[in-house]
Simulated scan of single mutants.
Amino acid sequence: MLKQFSLVFFVLIACYVGVNVRESKHITKEFEVNAPASEVWELCRSLGLKNLVARKLKNVVQSVQVLKGDGGVGTVVKTTLVPGISSYTEKFTVIDDQKRVKVAQGLEGDCLAFGCSVLNLRLEIIEKSQNSSIIKYTVSYTVKKEFQAKDPKPTIQKLEAMIQLSKEYLERNN
């Protein structure tokens, strides 16, 4: 009896996870950077990129506030965009120094405010050669059923501006 229950439970969980995976959408982009992967990772792994963006992209970002944490896993950051009416809050959920992977979960703002139920950003730094690397980002999001006809998407233009800024900064200082 217990084996049958376990099998039924496993099948139900697999169906639930399968449905959620199918509903998730992904946007992936890569930026080549003429800088060592270790330097790119050092900028991106904690609050370095956020601080750089706050200083250099004043036409895009009004402020960056650390609401909780020190840049490690569990850190919550609120980014307020110009003109100051739009903001995005995220929580760092994974920082893997071995794989050079950082994952942030959106908590509020962006497409979560107009139809998405899940928003995650995965940033990966890939070593291409000794002095060259790739910044790869993947934005994963799930649209609520009642908003699927409107097909809301995360705003990636500002993310791309931030990554482009980091690319220019790293190449200039390399």
Rank of each mutant, 00 (worst) to 15 (best):
K91N: 10
G69F: 09
Y141R: 05
Y16G: 12
N59Q: 03
K56A: 09
K150D: 11
V21R: 15
V17P: 03
I126E: 04
F114C: 08
R122I: 02
Q164N: 07
N120S: 12
I13L: 14
V118H: 08
E127V: 12
I134P: 01
T80P: 12
N51H: 12
N173D: 09
I27D: 02
G48C: 02
C15L: 15
E32Y: 14
L67T: 13
A37E: 06
K78V: 11
G69P: 07
G106N: 03
S46Q: 13
G69S: 07
A54L: 09
G84F: 09
I156G: 00
V94A: 01
T79M: 06
L67Q: 13
V94T: 09
F9H: 02
V64M: 14
K99F: 01
T142S: 14
E146N: 08
A104V: 05
Y88I: 09
I125W: 01
E90V: 07
W41V: 00
L49Y: 05
K136G: 07
T138D: 02
S38I: 10
K99N: 03
L47G: 04
L49C: 05
I27Y: 05
I95Y: 03
L47T: 08
V53S: 10
L7Y: 10
L12C: 13
K50L: 15
K25W: 00
A54H: 11
E108H: 10
Q130S: 13
I95G: 06
I134M: 06
E90T: 12
D97M: 01
T93G: 00
L2N: 14
L81R: 05
V143F: 00
K158R: 07
F147M: 10
L7C: 13
E90M: 09
K68L: 12
S38F: 11
K25S: 10
S87N: 15
V21C: 10
E124R: 07
E168G: 04
G109Y: 08
Y169H: 15
L123R: 03
K3M: 09
G109I: 01
G71Y: 11
K158F: 10
E39G: 09
A14N: 07
G109T: 04
L7W: 12
V40G: 06
L52R: 03
S6H: 07
S117G: 13
Q130I: 13
E108M: 11
L67V: 12
L57K: 01
A35Y: 04
F5V: 07
F31N: 11
N131I: 12
T93Y: 06
Q148S: 11
Y88R: 05
K3L: 15
F31K: 01
Y16V: 12
I125R: 09
K3F: 14
I27F: 09
I156H: 00
L12Q: 08
Q4R: 12
A161V: 07
D97N: 11
N51T: 14
